[in-house]
Write a protein that binds this DNA or RNA. Sequence first.
DNA 1: TCTTATTCAGACTCATTTGTCTGATTCTAA
DNA 2: TTAGAATCAGACAAATGAGTCTGAATAAGA
Lengths: 150, 150
Amino acid sequence: MTVIFSKKCELGLQAVLFLSAQKAGKKFSASDISKELDVPREFVSKVLQTLTGSGIVGSQKGKSGGFFLDKSPEDVRLIDIVMAIDGLEIFHKCVLGFKGCSVSEPCPVHNKWGKLRDETYKMLSEETLAELRDKTVNKINSLKDLTSIS
Amino acid sequence: MTVIFSKKCELGLQAVLFLSAQKAGKKFSASDISKELDVPREFVSKVLQTLTGSGIVGSQKGKSGGFFLDKSPEDVRLIDIVMAIDGLEIFHKCVLGFKGCSVSEPCPVHNKWGKLRDETYKMLSEETLAELRDKTVNKINSLKDLTSIS
DNA sequence: TCTTATTCAGACTCATTTGTCTGATTCTAA
DNA sequence: TTAGAATCAGACAAATGAGTCTGAATAAGA
């Protein structure tokens, strides 16, 4: 069970954050990323394919190829990745699953959730990867420690 | 795709809210509830079975039996239903899916999500079914309109 | 007591999501 | 130009969760 996003989306977010923490333009194979994030190689490959389609990530085939961030970190926000993989549906549905939930026919938590939902959206859209860089680098480094311990 | 909770949980929340909007102690068959909420009869039955196990809902077998709210609405909160069906796992996991996410090794949105997560928990736990009653009754009535139109 | 309506419980099927494999493609370097 | 190394892309398989079915149990009412 995931919190909000699908596994695919979680991995997409992690992979892009990983790339944004590296030297700009450097390429990483699906294997590299798979080791860093401790997830199956092919799954990385598949998710990054999706992001390649939306222009966030680039890929180069052939020897010494790999995946890389294809946009400037100033131009990418977490919400872009969510949009590319899961879409924005979750920001438009009733948290209790009621049909026809709206301002005029609100569910018992409509207003409260509306506020939280908007803040979640804001959390994902107000900072760019560039602005998140320091935090990202710290987290990525801590992952290395995790895998070297185990 | 659901927002946060599983379909089972969404239906459980809706069914309990439905029961809490009715005359106390009145029994409803899975069919009744299924028609009201426009979901499959057997699915209602299955989800309410789960809630029967945790004592929130009661059931009576045999003719003129059915499901009913087995606790006073003052004693039930939405979080109780979430707990019984999905558990509290989502309140303890990293929203980006990072392994080992914690205060000492936070992900880039750790603090922001922590706040939103706590407020979500609060949304589900600060009001009882009794306190939500007016809002619930309104919503349940609007559902009737929906089905009668279609 | 007997019939009928109804739930319960668990086995089952179906759909979706997650994860894996393979062949074709592409690039590098000799 | 050719061989080798690596990715891409899409087909495939497995796992999970959603939803359905059936038979046994149970209670009400005739």
